[in-house]
Design a binder for these strands. Structure first.
Lengths: 238, 238
DNA sequence: CGTCTGTTTGCACGATATTGCACGAATCAG
DNA sequence: CTGATTCGTGCAATATCGTGCAAACAGACG
């Protein structure tokens, strides 16, 4: 197995399972633990994962378990959620990405809003139960653990068959030059497709994302409307 | 389990339940209380929680709603869930239908069971987040509000592409003559397909379902294993 | 073809981290 | 006050880490 190939495998595995254990990987790949540790060290140096004793974990706050993320920036997210919810007009077809901000958006929706919501995040779908007039389309696929959204070929194909009016996209970085970015290549590709299926894209960005950049690009800032907690929408490019 | 991962788990658990008890955590994670206490001490030193005698509490006494829903037949379902969870062997591919009983089954699964779970219920999928070694395949489709599972052509097609070892099916009636039944025709058809894709079918039936019958038939009793709250499995046909 | 160079891998070894246990001190409940 | 529980510390066993080094290997170059 090629070294680069192995590193990719490690990252993919991390995205899928949410953790890597050096000893298990060495046994599975029939390599010494030293080699695995070297890989993990280098991947950590490149900023692709968090090295911990015994293996590695996904990086940074956006990759932490849901329960832990939910407590962060509650009021900022609630405020963003309000603004986001106000963008949805009756009858529209809306693609809703995963993430705690969008979970807050669901909570902020009017109870009798009639529309169609398409999502690949089971948590979002489950939260839509109390809305009698919202039709929910669940997109299937293999569930990524750290982000709790479906991904893979099946997911991509399902989204490709859809046309929507609005697409709420979750990102980890919003930067004037690199545009919208996220921490995983596959994730970035899927988000790009989701965005392409909708007439209009919206990103609800908490302040900590503004001016930051993640490894994988999704699209330029001019392709979406960026909503922040500031008093008026901020177009970073302007 | 990685040390860092365990600490994250503790924080997540604290955010979710509002308190941590050292003794219970040690039992649940199969570790000595010393290790848990050490974790709590370190997390407290890092300013992530408030160490108290016997466990830990959140730093900011903000809110802990603890909206523990009082479902019906909680202990009967928990008992059934235990029995059901025991049927899943490591490495198996399992189809899991929606419903509160199956939600209880998820809660009863061993924390490190390696297997694949296929479900069209977003609630079930979301509940599987804390299980690092379970691969979750989400089946998409149009979400039915009353049962909160995906249904329709897309769902049917997705299930048709799958082969599983085990299929846990939710039903509303278990009767010696009419067999397994449910209240919706489309639902019955989908359940029949799900059952057909698995080598073995299992129905976790609370007592109130036994001997009753709903309008739409799924399959005969002899095609599945019916597990009840009784001490030994009851085959109603016998 | 022979040599050199850079990369990759596995091994050795001392350093560090983690875990469980023992034991006395502190705390809690009645 | 008394018994039981929990706590903190020290210690030993084990696991993991990082570094240095040598062998194997592929490619560059003469």
């Amino acid at each position: 197995m090629l070294t680069t190939e192995r590193k990719s495998l490690l990252l993919a595995r991390l995205a899928q399972t949410g953790r890597l254990v050096a000893r298990d990987l060495a046994a599975e790949l029939a390599l010494s633990e030293d080699t695995i540790r070297r890989d993990l060290r280098e991947l950590a140096a490149e900023g692709h994962l968090l090295r911990v004793h015994g293996g590695a974990l996904p990086l940074s706050p956006t990759h932490r378990p849901m329960a832990q993320r939910q407590g962060m920036q509650v009021q900022a997210k609630a405020q963003l959620a309000q603004k986001g919810a106000a963008l949805i007009r009756p009858g529209q077809i809306v693609i809703l990405d995963g993430g705690t901000t969008h979970l807050a958006l669901v909570a902020a929706l009017p109870k009798d809003l009639p529309c169609t919501i398409i999502t690949h995040a089971p948590g979002i779908a489950a939260a839509l139960e109390p809305f009698p007039k919202i039709e929910v389309i669940l997109i299937g696929g293999r569930l990524m653990r750290h982000s709790m959204v479906a991904m893979g070929a099946e997911t991509t194909a399902s989204f490709a068959r859809i046309r929507a009016d609005l697409c709420f996209l979750g990102v980890t970085g919003v930067h004037p030059e690199t545009g919208l970015t996220t921490g995983d290549a596959e994730e970035a590709a899927l988000k790009r497709i989701m965005l392409g299926q909708a007439a209009e894209g919206v990103v609800l960005a908490t302040e900590d994302k503004l001016g930051t950049s993640s490894p994988w690009g999704i699209a330029g800032l001019n392709t979406v409307r960026v909503v922040t907690t500031g008093d008026r929408p901020v177009w970073l490019g302007a």
